[in-house]
């Protein structure tokens, strides 16, 4: 009873050490964790805690609205959970997760476009959503940049966001999007040109 006051700090310390151990895990170690039924959930929770923010921003920049991003995030992590057994330790975990998030985002946008019956350019719809989004508080210049990005086709927008905002290497982008580095460079170059042209008009 005398040492009750020590229990709480001790527990906190244990949790910190556990988290530290988890943070240091490599892709192969995570792979081992998720292959075992007993440790599958621990491995998955680690993936969620480590990659949720990065995946959120990738998805958010694609679907624009926070509520939509939340839906796509949920779908992405559900897909990740359902396909954990398929993840091979030799591949980069980050690449694998990104690929799922990209596919989910593009699938969501395609679904939305179909619901619009292609009457309007979906970029315009997203641009309107940006105006009304309570979770966008960027400057006028940032808003203009986002509107310019929304004029790009989805694939080009994806490449632009990955390169410009996340400063991702072309090599990593090529692995995620399954395209050649040359094609991605050309894509980004075209995207930058279009964005610049759009911004010059205003």
């Amino acid at each position: 009873m005398k040492f009750d006051f020590l229990i709480k700090p001790f527990c906190k310390l244990v949790i910190k050490v556990q988290n530290k151990n988890l943070q240091d895990k490599s892709s192969s170690e995570i792979s081992k964790l998720i292959q075992e039924p007993q440790t599958k959930e621990v491995g998955f929770r680690y993936i969620v805690s480590q990659y949720k923010e990065r995946l959120y921003w990738l998805i958010r920049r694609m679907v624009i609205h926070h509520v939509d991003a939340e839906d796509v995030m949920q779908n992405t992590f559900i897909k990740i959970w359902q396909n954990l057994e398929k993840f091979r330790g030799d591949a980069d975990l980050y690449t694998w997760l990104y690929r799922i998030a990209v596919n989910e985002s593009l699938a969501f946008l395609n679904k939305k476009k179909k619901q619009q019956f292609n009457l309007n350019d979906y970029g315009d719809v997203l641009s309107e959503q940006l105006e009304s989004d309570s979770f966008f508080d960027g400057s006028e210049a940032q808003k203009l940049l986002q509107k310019a990005i929304l004029t790009l086709p989805d694939q080009q927008r994806l490449v632009f966001n990955m390169r410009y905002f996340e400063e991702m290497k072309y090599q990593d982008m090529a692995r995620i999007l399954d395209r050649s580095e040359g094609a991605l460079k050309a894509n980004y170059h075209h995207a930058v040109k279009k964005v610049e042209d759009f911004c010059k008009q205003y």
Binding site: K52, E53, Y56, W57, R60, R61, H66, A69, E70, F135, F136, D137, G138, S139, A141, Q142, K143, L145, Q146, Y164, F165
Partner: peptide, 16 residues
């Protein structure tokens, strides 16, 4: 400056 604050996007503070 353009990249600041995730390019102008934010999210509910308790989201994560």
């Amino acid at each position: 400056e353009l990249k600041e604050n995730s390019g102008g996007f934010n999210m509910p503070p308790i989201f994560f």
